[in-house]
Design a protein around this nucleic acid. Structure first.
Lengths: 353, 353
DNA sequence: TGTTAGCACTCAATTAGCTGGAGTGCTAAC
DNA sequence: GTTAGCACTCCAGCTAATTGAGTGCTAACA
């Protein structure tokens, strides 16, 4: 069967009405709309066709229609218009929401900024938001600074591009003389600065150890710390906000399900490994929409999730996502994400080299 | 009216039975207990007295009895036995729960440790847990390390006692020569190390600025950063875990209330300012029990909260707390907290000077 | 005097039956 | 192709009846 223009309009009307009310929408409701001036009976015929195509269903015999996952998919892929105008619209929308406050004051602490970003997104959309911390794998080392802490301990501060700072307290057993420390600092910085984790290979490690001479074991410990700073692949920090927004949508407010959902949001780790994973070769502009069963998290099979990739500095990237009911306002969510992306890029790109 | 031994036993029985079932307990149930071999009628007479004393109530005329806040208060203050034996009991209990894993491996990152502690507490008790980060006010400065980052930026690493590390990126407009940096580092460390925030007064600040000479403004910025490292009084980090455990207790699972509750747990800030506040002159051994209306958080008026103060290093302290239904197992909770405290003190006290 | 058996009573929770309304599918007429 | 009409279905909300757990009170008993 073919999806002609009228059917398309009816499907759109059903989706929009259901979005607002959360109730199944009947033929009478639609026939009263301005641009669909047909009798309920006609609408019913069309709806029967749409149901046959698997785009809508009725929860029970004498109820109105509700979009199916497939219906939403069609909507998102074809019917949703995210043309040029949309960006300017949402940019005009955002100022009301403290976004510019966040963006004007460039925060030095990345974590805090991401957390606040999650909060703003949740407040803006009235859905639940998720922001993963950046993946460091492809990031580069800016510099290393070691300081003596006394009692055989060394503080290693590792700074990556994007001003991401990692601290590490190393236990090296004995205190080093200041000039030894200076030399070691120089040696490490000289050899490592500007490199990514892949570029630190065995040859280089051997070279550093040789240069460190009798302090080779200290150098080795520092290198471990450097690897540790990069290697957060399996434990990316995830920030969420607005978890309680899901209580607003009765179709999700079933007590058993809501508990599972909030649990996943609290644990965060599952979010990081599934939704937070940045696919290889993924373009920055890509926005992923997961609808219902498509969501790769079990407890969210009744939800939809929209994610986008953000970029900060060189090869450092993460995900932001919105989690809401399947009848979420995809238009608004996609626009909000796009606007956030473009503004984020603005902050991060400028002050870095 | 006097609370004789039999009445006490009956109250205890009601509290314990209600703890397990969550249902109002009737006279028949109690008369079947081993050490209370009276007829239901006798028990009823006693229960009527207990009700008159305000220790129990019946939710409706033909229901069993439920303890009141006042009843729980009496229980916690007098009937609860937390004698010497209890500590060893709970210590024997904890090993099954990864606690020793956490404690054996001394984590260098304080935040991560506190977060995992919250997780373990929640898993252990099946209630919701809360851990506030330490208050730094009375802590002391261990040392400061500044490094040049290029393009007019300076990285200031501030280490407090207890190996709490703070990073700060300062924008000073121009790059400093290495020897200037060395001198500045020396000057600051020389003047500040070992001091608490209160001890850094105007006279000292003036002295430092004089020593810094033409770099007085840089020194001022560093001092601001130091103050910032200490002054987290109003934004103590709070870690929570097991929020979804409250779904297990039907008396809390009302959809409106549970949303408010989880919201507070998610926001965290209110927890920090009320429950997280360490009272002046509070002894380390003190354990606070808030029952129902006593809880200083609005959305928790149907809950009970038990908190304890932990100590790490010199004057650095924070709170850990358990949030659960009023019918929580106070015995177990108090024991778990005490055991955690004593083990925590063990870790923090030993490796520090 | 303390304890207990008996009985009438109360009230929440469950169940069954009823009704109204919203919505549908189908058919026949326009 | 569109529409009016009609029989049908099913949910939601209401009421009434039933059940069961538990109580308070009184009178008898040890």
């Amino acid at each position: 069967m073919e999806l002609d223009d009228r059917k398309r309009k009816i499907l759109l009307a059903i989706i929009q009405n259901y979005q607002e009310t959360g109730e199944p929408v009947g033929s009478r409701t639609i026939s009263k709309m301005d641009d669909l001036n047909y009798s309920p009976a006609t609408i019913r015929n069309e709806m029967a066709d749409l149901e046959e195509m698997g785009l809508i269903v009725q929860p029970h015999t004498s109820a109105g229609r509700v979009p199916t996952d497939k219906g939403y998919r069609l909507y998102v892929d074809n019917l949703l218009k995210t043309d040029e105008t949309s960006l300017t619209v949402s940019e005009a929308q955002l100022p009301g929401t403290h976004m510019e406050q966040l963006l004007s004051k460039r925060m030095d602490r990345v974590e805090e900024m991401l957390m606040r970003m999650a909060q703003i997104l949740a407040a803006n959309t009235q859905y639940t938001s998720m922001v993963t911390g950046p993946h460091y794998k492809r990031n580069k080392l800016k510099f290393i600074q070691m300081s003596a802490m006394g009692s055989g301990k060394l503080l290693a501060v590792i700074v990556l591009n994007g001003n991401i700072v990692k601290n590490n307290i190393l236990d090296i057993g004995a205190d080093l003389a200041p000039e030894v420390l200076t030399n070691l600092n120089f040696c490490l910085n000289n050899n490592l600065n500007g490199l990514s984790i892949e570029e630190i290979n065995l040859a280089l490690i051997t070279k550093i150890k040789e240069e460190a001479g009798e302090y080779a074991d200290v150098a080795a410990k520092v290198l471990d710390a450097v690897a540790g700073a990069f290697d957060k692949e399996d434990s990316v920090p995830v920030y969420t906000s607005g978890a309680t927004n899901i209580f607003k949508y009765p179709e999700l407010a079933d007590n058993g399900k809501i508990s599972d959902l909030i649990n996943v949001l609290e644990e965060k780790s599952e979010l990081g490994t599934t939704l937070g994973h940045v696919a290889e070769g993924e373009s920055k502009q890509d926005i992923q929409v997961y609808i219902g069963d498509e969501v790769p998290v079990d407890s969210m099979k009744d939800c939809s999730v929209v994610t986008a990739t953000y970029q900060m500095g060189d090869g450092v990237q993460g995900k932001i996502g919105i989690i809401g009911p399947k009848r979420m306002d995809y238009q608004k969510v996609v626009e909000t994400l796009k606007a956030t992306m473009s503004q984020l890029d603005g902050i991060f790109m400028k002050p870095e080299e």
